[in-house]
Amino acid sequence: MNTLVEARRPGLRSLITLIGCEAKMVMRDTAGLVVPLCLPLLIMLTSASSASRTPVDNGRTALDVYVLPLVFTMVIAIIGIINMPSFLAYYRRSGILRRLGVTPASPAMVLAAQAVVSVLQALVGTTAALVVAFLAFGANPPANRGTALGVVALAMAAMYSAGMIVAAVAPTPNSAVAIGLVAFFILGALGGMFGGRDSLPEPLAEVGGWLPFGAAVEALSSAWAGAAVPAANLIGLGATIVVAAVVAGLLFRWE
């Protein structure tokens, strides 16, 4: 008598194991580990001293309202748009995703594990910046902490959704890094990374406020100052999540 054995999908334990493997891969990638953690921190250090002595509003300084939101957004964007897509492009090129497709393990588990590791890396980067700002420069916490946490979560989802488009179209890890860098600098330039959106022509500044980088910076700035977050920022982040997820889903190939 033939016995039919049904293959079972791996459970939570397998996902945790895969997350551990992904974390080791990230830690072995020196540039991918150091750049998103240290570059934003270095940028903060160059301006934190003077910004911490410049009062803005509601007991907050320029360090709180302008510098830290920018640093947080940079950490999230570098990891979501540059780092994560390069790993997924490597897995596709090396055939890992294709081989997983014929096993009980779904390739989607790799995506989930990489997303979890990316979020943890972003949390390490933002926490490091926050600790340095608190201890060395007397920074203040956000006036609306719950709102700030919600904006960070939205920003992560938006940046990772945009990064999935990069992963979908990049044929190799190097091309993923190149495309991600271009996207990062375009979004950053329009979002005020090089001197604030006020220095841009009005049409570009308006567009930058709707794109994920500028929307995240402005929304975090508002939360830090205790002001209401502009609806345009939330709509921009939400639209990025939906549109980028749909586009990435249509374009993404496992091999």
Rank of each mutant, 00 (worst) to 15 (best):
M1R: 15
V5C: 08
R8M: 08
R9P: 00
S14M: 01
V26W: 03
M27E: 01
R28C: 04
A31T: 03
V35F: 03
S52K: 01
P55C: 09
V56A: 03
R60Y: 12
R60H: 14
V67F: 08
V67M: 01
L68A: 05
T73R: 04
T73F: 01
V75N: 11
G80M: 02
I82W: 14
L100D: 12
L100C: 09
V102E: 14
A108R: 10
V110N: 14
L111Q: 07
Q114C: 04
A115Q: 06
V119Y: 12
L120N: 02
L120M: 09
L123T: 10
V124T: 12
V131A: 13
L135C: 07
L135Q: 15
F137Q: 10
P141M: 11
N144E: 15
V152A: 03
V152F: 15
A153W: 10
A155D: 04
M156Y: 15
A158W: 03
A158Y: 05
A158S: 15
M159D: 11
Y160K: 02
S161E: 09
A162C: 11
P171L: 09
P173E: 05
S175K: 11
A176E: 06
A176N: 13
I179L: 05
I179E: 00
V182G: 00
V182S: 00
A183L: 09
M193T: 02
M193K: 04
F194E: 10
G196P: 13
R197H: 11
D198C: 06
D198H: 07
E202N: 04
V207I: 15
V217D: 14
L220H: 08
A225H: 09
A228S: 13
P230E: 10
A231R: 13
N233E: 02
L234I: 09
L237E: 03
V243H: 14
A244I: 01
L250I: 07
E255A: 14
E255T: 12
